[in-house]
Amino acid sequence: MWGWLVLAIGSEVAGTLALRASQGFSRLLPSVLTLGGYGLAFWSLSQALTRGMALGVAYGVWAAVGVAAVALIGALFLGESLTWVQLGGIVLVIGGVLALEMGGSGAHA
């Protein structure tokens, strides 16, 4: 299950980075990579769900890690700004996802 979710996150991040490079879908290769990345991301997410991962946990982890990864990659490699407030927001989102996961652990038994 978790392997599928990791693939979904990586594909979504790659698709989002390609979306930036596509310049409004005016460049062919980044546009194709965007569509392929998002397609693979949703398919992989569906595979994690099919194999028993809870929807709230899967979507929460996928979204939180994706947002954090894109924000950090943007700041580290693409010259985008990342303020302390934004970093705090990322920490809060990840904390919320962890709360979802830990709070639901009894429901899986």
Rank of each mutant, 00 (worst) to 15 (best):
residue 79 G to F: 14
residue 83 T to S: 12
residue 107 A to K: 09
residue 52 G to K: 10
residue 87 L to F: 13
residue 54 A to N: 11
residue 47 Q to T: 01
residue 18 A to C: 06
residue 86 Q to R: 15
residue 13 V to M: 08
residue 79 G to Q: 09
residue 17 L to Y: 05
residue 107 A to Y: 12
residue 74 G to V: 01
residue 57 V to K: 10
residue 1 M to F: 12
residue 99 A to N: 09
residue 100 L to I: 15
residue 75 A to S: 09
residue 70 V to P: 00
residue 103 G to Y: 04
residue 64 A to F: 13
residue 104 G to A: 06
residue 9 I to R: 04
residue 91 V to A: 15
residue 64 A to H: 03
residue 15 G to H: 04
residue 18 A to W: 05
residue 72 L to G: 02
residue 41 A to K: 05
residue 9 I to H: 02
residue 61 V to F: 05
residue 71 A to Y: 12
residue 18 A to F: 08
residue 74 G to D: 00
residue 20 R to H: 14
residue 92 L to W: 01
residue 15 G to R: 02
residue 66 G to A: 00
residue 5 L to R: 00
residue 79 G to I: 04
residue 30 P to R: 00
residue 66 G to F: 08
residue 35 L to K: 05
residue 17 L to P: 00
residue 5 L to P: 01
residue 87 L to H: 03
residue 5 L to N: 12
residue 21 A to T: 05
residue 109 A to I: 09
residue 39 G to S: 10
residue 39 G to W: 12
residue 52 G to L: 02
residue 79 G to W: 11
residue 38 Y to C: 05
residue 48 A to I: 02
residue 102 M to N: 07
residue 39 G to M: 06
residue 2 W to R: 04
residue 3 G to T: 11
residue 92 L to R: 13
residue 69 A to K: 06
residue 82 L to N: 12
residue 54 A to E: 15
residue 34 T to Y: 08
residue 25 F to A: 08
residue 49 L to N: 04
residue 53 M to D: 01
residue 22 S to F: 14
residue 52 G to H: 02
residue 100 L to K: 10
residue 13 V to C: 11
residue 36 G to T: 01
residue 64 A to Q: 05
residue 35 L to H: 06
residue 109 A to N: 10
residue 17 L to W: 01
residue 97 V to L: 04
residue 53 M to R: 02
residue 55 L to Q: 02
residue 90 I to N: 15
residue 81 S to T: 08
residue 63 A to Y: 13
residue 24 G to K: 09
residue 90 I to D: 00
residue 3 G to Q: 10
residue 20 R to E: 07
residue 26 S to I: 03
residue 47 Q to I: 06
residue 63 A to V: 13
residue 97 V to Q: 15
residue 103 G to K: 09
residue 27 R to Y: 10
residue 99 A to L: 14
residue 59 Y to P: 00
residue 5 L to S: 02
residue 28 L to H: 11
residue 3 G to H: 08
residue 103 G to R: 13
residue 99 A to S: 15
residue 19 L to M: 14
residue 55 L to M: 12
residue 2 W to T: 14
residue 52 G to W: 01
residue 93 V to M: 14
residue 37 G to N: 02
residue 100 L to G: 14
residue 37 G to F: 06
residue 13 V to P: 11
residue 57 V to M: 10
residue 32 V to C: 04
residue 16 T to G: 13
residue 80 E to T: 09
residue 13 V to F: 04
residue 51 R to M: 15
residue 91 V to D: 10
residue 58 A to L: 05
residue 1 M to G: 09
residue 76 L to G: 03
residue 55 L to E: 09
residue 73 I to D: 03
residue 70 V to E: 08
residue 21 A to E: 12
residue 52 G to M: 09
residue 33 L to V: 09
residue 95 G to L: 11
residue 73 I to V: 13
residue 86 Q to D: 00
residue 48 A to P: 00
residue 51 R to N: 08
residue 53 M to K: 02
residue 8 A to I: 04
residue 20 R to Y: 08
residue 48 A to G: 08
residue 87 L to C: 13
residue 86 Q to S: 07
residue 15 G to A: 01
